[in-house]
Design a protein around this nucleic acid. Sequence first.
RNA 1: AGGCCCGUAGCUCAGUUGGUUAGAGCGCAACGUUGACAUCGUUGAGGUCGGUGGUUCGAGCCCACUCGGGCCUACCA
Length: 881
Amino acid sequence: MEKRFDPQSYERRWQAFWRDHHLFRARSGADADGAGAGRPFCIMIPPPNVTGKLHIGHALQSALQDLVVRWKRMQGFNALWLPGTDHAGISTQLMVERQLEAEGTSRREVGRERFEERTWEWKHKFHSNIRQQLEVLGASCDWSRERFTLDDGLSTAVRTAFVRLYREGLVTRGEYMVNWSPALQTAISDLEVETREVKGKLYHLAYPVADSDQRLVVATTRPETLLGDAAVAAHPDDPRYRSLIGGFAVLPILGRLLPIVADSHVDPQFGTGLVKVTPCHDPADYEIARRHGLVGEKVIGPDGRMTAAAGPDYAGLDRYEARRRVLERLTADGLVVRVEDHVHNVGHSQRSGEPIEPLLSTQWFCDMTAMAERALEVVRTGELELRPSSWDKTWEHWLADIRPWCISRQLWWGHRIPAWYDRAGGCHVALDREEAERMAGTDELEQDPDVLDTWFSSGLWPFSTLGWPDPEAPDLGTFYPTDLLITGFDILFFWVARMTMMGLHFTGETPFRAVHLTGLVRDADGEKMSKMKGNTLDPMDLVEEYGADALRFTLCALDAPGRDIPLDLERMAGYRAFGNKIWNATRFALSRIGEAEVQAELDLAGLEAPERWILSRFSRTAEEVGARFESTRFDEACNRLYHFFWGELCDWYIEFAKPALSGAAPRPRVGEVLLTVLDRSLRLLHPVMPHLTEELWQRLPGISRLGFSALAVARYPEALAEWRDDAAEQTIETVIGVVGRVRSLRAERGLSPKLDGRLFLEAGEPAILESLVGQRALVESLTGSSALQCGRAGDHAIRDRVAGIDLALEIDLPGLDHGEMERLRRELERLEVEIQSAEGRLANPQFIDKAPPQVIAGNRERLGELQERRRLLVDQIRSGA
RNA sequence: AGGCCCGUAGCUCAGUUGGUUAGAGCGCAACGUUGACAUCGUUGAGGUCGGUGGUUCGAGCCCACUCGGGCCUACCA
C-alpha cells in the first residue's frame, strides 16, 4: 500500500466507479414496492442557478445532503437525492445581455426568439459545469432524474399551477403599487427589495395656500415627485392645520390646486407634520390617495425618467437630474425653506443594486393569505419541523403578515405567463394556446409578454420534479412528500415558505417533513465572503488542495445549528491530517494482520479486555453517531467520529494491539478484531468521507465475503448490544488512567521515557488491581516501566493516586530539586482549596437533604480521592525535604 | 419600531433536561523519530464562562436588567 496519503490519486476514480455501477439510482413505482427495495427516502437539491459555478455555500449544503442520503442508502433505504438546476430568470438574462453587449448588440436588437436561443446555449454550457462540480464533491445524486426548472415537465407543472390558481381566484391581474427596478426594467417582489440606510436630505418646501398669502411647509426627501402631487395631508388632530383641512394649496411650478386632507397616517411629530401626497410614486401616499378618492399623475416612467406629465421642463430627465432641476426652480422661487441632513431607509434592488422606484403598474399577483395560514399551521403542529426551531418565530412573523406576491416579470428568460389576450382585451388563461383559442373562440390572440418570477417555479420543485401534475407519476407516489430539505436560512421565505405553501395547496401535504437550515459560510475571521473583498474560496480549489473528503468533513463538522460557518483553512488542514491518520492506521493494520480477515459476525468468545473494550466503544460510537445524523446534528456526529477513530482506535487500541500483533504478548484473534473494527469504522465514516473510506475499505481482506459491491452500498453499522461490555470498559479505562498518570509523573519530573521504572500498585480495590495486573503487558509497554506488581515500593518512589489506585513509580533518580518541590507545594495548595470546597459542600445539611443521592455519593468519593492524594503529596514533600 | 442570534482558553468553536473537576481543534512550551502516521507521539501552560442582580442546596446553562456584535422584518414622508 502506498505510503503517501494522496486524495487526488483516488477520488475521481471512485466517483467514476459509483457512477458506472449506477449505485445511486433510486427505484420507484412497482419497482420500489418489490421486496427488498427498502423504504423510500428523498432529498431534493436546492437547485443551483444554472448561470454560475458552485460556491462554498453549495459545497456546504451538498456535503450535508450527501451525508444524509449516503447514510440512509447504507441503512437500506431506497434513497433518492434528486439533482437539478434553476433557470434563475434575472441573473441568467443579465449574463446573456452582458454577452450581447460585448458583441455590440442587445436583446432588443436580436429579438426575443434569438435571445432565448442564446440563453439556452448559455444554459447548456454552465449546466454541465455544475453537474461536474457536484461529482467532484462526491455527491451521490441520481443523475437519471436530473431536472431543470424550464424543462418540459416542469413547464407543464408551472402552467398547471398558474391556471389552477387563476381559476381559484388566487392569481389576479391588476394595477397596483409595485417595486420597480429601473435598471432591470421589471417589477420585483417585496423580498427582492433590500432596504439600505442612506444619508439624504429632508427638504422643507413651501406650498402657497390658495386664495391666501399663507404658506404650508411640507417635508420631503424626494422633491422631484412634487410634480405628481395630488394633495397635501395633515393628521386630523393636528391643531396647527385643522382649520385648513378642506381647503387647497397651490402646487409650486405647475400651479395645480391640491386639496388639503386629513389622514391619520401622518405623523405630526415628523418634519412639519404636513405630507405632500404623490399617489403614483409612494406606497403610503397611494393609500392616502385611495382613502380620499384622489388620483395622481405618473411623472416617473419605467425607465426612471420623467414622463410628459411632469411638464415640458422635466420630461425625459432622469429622476435624479429632475430632482436637481426642481430644487433649482424652487430655490429661485424662494420656496425652499430649509434643508436638513436626513438618514433614512431606501429600498434597493437586490439584483442590480439601484434604488427601486415604487410605481403604479399592471402586474400579476398571487394572494398568499390562505396558503400562508396552512403553512403556519404545519409548523405549529410539528408536521413540518424547522431546525433549529429558533426559526419558528421568524416563520410566524413573516407568514402572519404576508402580502400579495407580484409574480410577473418583464423579462424574456423564464416561464411565459399562460394568458392570452384577444383583440377586445379579453384575457384567457389556459394551459396552452389551443385551449385559450377554444375559450376565446378566435385564434387572434396575443400571449402575455411577461414571464413568471423564478421562485414561482422553484416553489413547485419538490413535486414538479417527481412528475406532478400527473397523479399517476411513479416517482411522485414513491417519494412524495420528501423527507428532508437542507438549505440556507437566507432563502427561507424566497423558497422554503413558498414550497411549503404551494406544496400544501396543490398536494395537500407539506413537501418535506423537516428543514435543516444552514448558516452562511464566512472566512476564518468571520467576514462574509464576497468577490469585492476577494476573500471567496472556490470549493474546487479546496478539493484540489485538501481533497473533497477533508472539505466535506470540515463543512459538516462546522455546521452548528443557528450559527454561521467560519471556514478556517487551518482546520481543514487538520481534517486532511485526519484522513492521513485513517490512511496510515489502515496501512498499519494491513501490514500486520497476517492471515486475518474482516468478519461478518465476530465470535466474541475468548476475546480479552482490549478487544472487548474497542468493540464496546465502537458500538457506543455507532449509536451516538446514528442518533446525531437522525437529528441533523452533523457537527456533533463528526466530532464523535473524529474522537473515536483518532482518540480511541488509533491512540489506544492500535497501541494495545501492537504487542499482541508482534507476538510479544499474543492475544486471541487480535488481527481479526482490528480488521473488523476498521471495516465498521470505515462504514461509519463513509457518509462524511466517501472517497477515502471506499478506497481503504476495498483493500481490506475478506470484504468480498460480506456481500456488498462497494462500501457506498454496504450496511451502515448500528449499536450492537452484544458488543457492549461495561466490565471491559471499566478495566481499560483504569489502564488508560494509570498509563496517563504515570506518563505525567515522568514528564513532570523530566524523566526520560527511556529510564526504566518499576511500577507498584500499592493499594486499591482488589478486583481492580487484579484486572490491571491482567493487562500487565499493556501497562508496562505504554508507561516504559517493567515489573508491574502489587505491593509496597521503596520510600523514594514517586507516588500518586488515580482511579482508586495508589500507585508508585520506583525509579533511580536524583532527589527532588527546588523547582520540583515548588511545583509539589503549588499542587498541594490547589488540592487544599478543592478539599475545602468539597468538605464545605458535604457539611451543608441542605445539600445533603436536597441533592440526589448519586450526586452526594459522587462528592464523597471525590473528597476521599482528594484527601488520599493530599496524603501522598505531603509524604512526598516530607521525604524530599 | 418589532423579532432572532451571538458574546466560554491567544484564535475558531462545543457544552444535551442546572449537579459542583467547563471541553475540542488550531496556536504555544518541553520532550520524543530505524519498526502506521512529523499530515506523528507524549506531557504541559492557558478560561471562572460580557456585566449586574435574582431563583436554587447547587448556575456557563433558568429569570430580570444591562453592555457589545451580527442578522431579519417594517410604507415615517
